[in-house]
């Protein structure tokens, strides 16, 4: 009798240890497979812009820059919208709130390849025919110093901005769903007290709801960043896949995930190793995001007397 118990426990332990093993496995495998590149070009790989399979020259900077810029655009656009939408859903009448909440959940469930296809066949043409000509032709934004340098004057429809837009549509529901869950959990007594002393809804949100749920709000934002960093398909279709350091927001670029997806099938030798090295960089980025958000949660939980 006791024997089955300890056997079952060992079995559970083994299954649980699988997570640690897999996590470790990812690092080991990527480090091993990317060894040739690190040995060949060392840290120069990180700052080189060249990507020439014929000459066996590889650099990661364009991909890294593309990944960071698209993620930045996506988060900047999605976070305020997600925050505002979550506030609206929490404040709305229960019937409306539930329906909208479910709609957001469904939006989060749509596969990323659908977003990619939508971006390729719908959003990119709209950007090309309407948005970019409007920004450049009508508003003449490309003649404004600095901003014009940032935007550029290409009107292909593909590029960093379009990719960032698609990504922001994609991560908005994730962030929004998390924020909504937190906002709903604010104790009603706190909110009612705020209303009782004459606060407006916005003041209640700003001074009561946000401080109450700040940890989970940040957690949600970090989750969104993680998603945007590693997203492949939604970006791949619309970024243009140009292996150059992007000059401006309208120019074609590439991301780490996009480069891997695009080149891996026909790569061999050093190029494959370079792609694994890119994978390692991506893994490192998403790992850092996790470590930062987890250690933040741990740091603040003791201060707030919460248990987790």
């Amino acid at each position: 009798m006791l024997k089955t118990d300890s056997l079952f426990k060992t079995l559970c332990l083994a299954a649980a240890a699988l997570t640690a093993l897999l996590t470790l496995g990812f690092f080991v495998q990527l480090i091993l497979s990317s060894m040739p590149v690190w040995r060949e070009s060392g840290l120069h790989f990180l700052i080189s812009c060249e990507w020439d399979p014929a000459e066996q020259k590889f650099g990661a900077l364009p991909s890294i820059a593309g990944t960071l810029i698209t993620t930045f655009i996506a988060v900047i656009l999605a976070v305020p919208l997600a925050f505002a939408a979550a506030l609206f859903i929490t404040d709305a009448r229960p019937a409306i709130g539930t329906v909208l909440g479910h709609a957001i959940d469904l939006l989060a469930a749509i596969p990323s390849v659908i977003y990619g296809m939508f971006g390729l066949f719908v959003l990119a043409p709209v950007m090309q025919d309407h948005v970019q000509p409007f920004l450049i032709g009508t508003l003449k934004l490309n003649h404004v110093p600095l901003l014009g340098r940032l935007l550029g004057s290409e009107t292909s429809g593909f590029g960093l901005l379009t990719a960032g837009l698609i990504l922001s549509i994609m991560i908005l529901p994730y962030i929004c769903a998390i924020m909504r869950d937190v906002f709903i959990m604010t104790p009603p007594v706190l909110k009612e007290s705020a209303f009782g002393i004459g606060c407006t809804r916005w003041e209640t949100a700003k001074d009561i709801i946000v401080p109450f749920g700040i940890r989970s709000i940040l957690g949600g934002i970090f989750l969104g960043i993680g998603r945007a960093l590693g997203e492949t398909m939604a970006v791949l279709f619309v970024i243009g896949n140009v292996m150059k350091f992007p000059e401006n927001l309208f120019s074609g670029a590439t991301t780490i995930a996009g480069t891997i997806a695009n080149n891996f099938a026909e790569a061999d030798g050093m190029q494959k190793s370079a792609l694994f090295a890119l994978g390692l960089i991506l893994l490192f980025m998403s790992f850092c995001i996790q470590v930062i958000s987890q250690s933040y949660l741990k740091m603040t939980s003791s201060g707030r007397g919460e248990k987790k």
Binding site: A16, G25, S33, L229, G230, T232, G279
Partner: peptide, 24 residues
Amino acid sequence: FLRFCANVMMGMPSILVGLFVYML
């Protein structure tokens, strides 16, 4: 520690899983 690993894996870019299984 295991929970931390699980979180890392949940945030893992899915294309890296493809690379991993390719080599595995």
